[in-house]
């Protein structure tokens, strides 16, 4: 048996050919990165999980529309990003209509998502580090969406500029400029931590 892990593209091809365990592997690989991406855009754990499920359902039902010319990661992030942004627009309209105030702040989100256990449950994680984490999370959440998504995809998910350009459907130059401007804003806001 081949010990080399299959590429995402191999997995989706196998899945298209009927191997549903390949789908399980795709879920295993993308569950956490996609969840972090969606959650950071929405700032709502419950909706983020719903949209994560919807993303995988769309992968399942639309598996035959994936073409090997595209990188699988760009396809799945595009689906997740579109869902998250639609939800964000829907929430904005809803908020505007209901004129509610003071809701939706990521940092104050009551339904905070679960953090990866080894970090959250670690009693040795000192107060200062927890504080830094909260600050960094909060400042990322406060970025305008265009910078936030660029920073998340580039500096947290570590996708290439080309991939981000495809996912966000913006020119390469715009991606670079958004990443740089997003970084500059974050650097400015996190000055005291440096």
């Amino acid at each position: 048996m081949n010990s080399q892990p299959l590429s995402d593209e191999d997995l989706i091809r196998n899945f298209q050919n009927g191997d549903a365990q390949a789908f399980d592997e795709i879920v295993a690989r993308y569950r956490i990165p996609l969840y972090n991406f969606i959650y950071r855009i929405l700032g709502d754990a419950v909706f983020a999980e719903d949209l994560l499920q919807e993303t995988f359902i769309r992968i399942w039902t639309n598996r035959h529309s994936y073409r090997a010319i595209a990188k699988f990661s760009t396809w799945i992030y595009t689906i997740a990003g579109n869902l998250a942004k639609s939800e964000l627009r829907r929430k904005k309209v809803h908020r505007w209509l209901s004129l509610s105030i003071g809701s939706g702040s990521f940092a104050d989100d009551k339904s905070r998502a679960l953090e990866i256990a080894d970090e959250e449950a670690d009693p040795t994680l000192d107060y200062e580090r927890k504080n830094i984490k909260q600050r960094v999370d909060k400042e990322i959440s406060r970025l305008p969406l265009v910078f936030k998504e660029a920073i998340i995809l580039r500096d947290i998910q570590e996708l290439s500029y080309e991939e981000i350009s495809i996912i966000l459907k913006i020119p390469l130059g715009t991606v670079k400029s958004r990443v740089n401007r997003g970084r500059a804003r974050l650097q400015k806001r996190l000055t005291d931590l440096r």
Partner: peptide, 10 residues
Amino acid sequence: LLEHSSLYQP
């Protein structure tokens, strides 16, 4: 600093 950001899970 970003490495200190949280990693969330469903």
